[in-house]
């Protein structure tokens, strides 16, 4: 029996016919063959993106003091001939500034970052000013006194004439107060970054003398009237808190013009001292 020969439909025509046979859709995601919501491309891509984002964040998290990550790098450099343990500047400088600071004190950080470099350039390098660091530890709490540990680290760094580098690295990377941010690992990282020789540093820290000396210095400072940090004693005149730089610079110029220091370094921290004259009081 002869059959009428029909033309073979093209692929496009077959697909069009198939579409007509399907149940009616509204949009591409509804109807009898609707995909579960969780299988929609948007949901799947969102989930993948969230996972990737979280993975990147997890990878980027600092390693918690392992020493693998870089610290803030202080911008100040110190000429070796100006550094003598915890002192900075020429011996015969007409102005001597004692700097009472606690390494956990945020205002001390501000002073260290904003004003110390300017003092260094404008007065210390010119032989006008010598700065004597007097680290005290009075902010520490709990079983591990982080202020004391940091000050002890600084004193051990001073034995290698790396005090100021250690000082700057601590303040540039200062963590939260008494929250464990200034761990042993942190101090080791700071010391390494400051160029301190590790074996001697560790040996120094292992001894009890260094902490006793910081504790003694703290008690002496408190007894002499230093109750807040930073406290600057400039040729015997006390400045509590972070001063305006111009105010401080003006005082240094005035004292330099007047001649030699009126008190020798360290006197103000002595319990026998009547205490410095408080000429400026600035809230920190």
């Amino acid at each position: 029996m002869a059959r009428a020969q029909q033309p073979t439909p093209s692929r496009r025509e077959r697909r069009a016919a198939e579409r007509l046979d399907r149940p009616a859709r509204s949009g591409s995601r509804s109807g009898a063959t609707k995909r579960p919501v969780w299988r929609s491309p948007l949901v799947l891509v969102t989930a993948a993106a969230l996972a990737i984002g979280a993975g990147i964040v997890a990878f980027a998290l600092p390693s918690g003091g392992s020493g693998d990550t870089a610290l803030f790098s202080p911008s100040t450099s110190y000429a070796a001939d100006l550094v003598d343990a915890e002192s900075l500047g020429a011996d015969g400088a007409p102005v001597v500034m004692e700097l009472y600071a606690d390494f956990q004190c945020p205002a001390c950080k501000l002073f260290a970052k904003e004003q110390l470099p300017r003092l260094l350039d404008e007065f210390v390098a010119q032989g006008t000013l010598r700065i004597e660091a007097r680290d005290i530890a009075f902010l520490g709490r709990g079983s591990r006194d982080e202020s004391l540990e940091l000050a002890a680290g600084a004193r051990c760094a001073a034995q290698q004439d790396r005090y100021w580098q250690f000082h700057d690295y601590v303040f540039w990377n200062q963590g939260r107060e008494n929250r464990g941010d200034h761990s042993e690992a942190f101090i080791a990282r700071v010391a390494a970054a400051a160029g301190v020789e590790k074996a001697a540093f560790d040996g120094c820290l292992a001894g009890s003398d260094v902490r006793a000396s910081i504790t003694g210095q703290t008690q002496a400072a408190l007894a002499s009237g230093v109750s807040s940090t930073p406290t600057l004693i400039v040729n015997g005149q006390s400045i509590v808190g972070v001063p305006q730089y111009d105010q401080l610079a003006g005082l240094i110029r005035q004292l330099a013009a007047a001649g030699s220091p009126t008190s020798s370094p360290g006197d103000a921290a002595s319990p026998d001292d009547a205490g410095p004259t408080n000429v400026v009081a600035q809230p920190s």
Partner: peptide
Amino acid sequence: LLAHYGLSLAGVIFEAY
């Protein structure tokens, strides 16, 4: 477009962090 959306979302998460 979907790839652009996904990658920018991953970037936004890191930016938030």
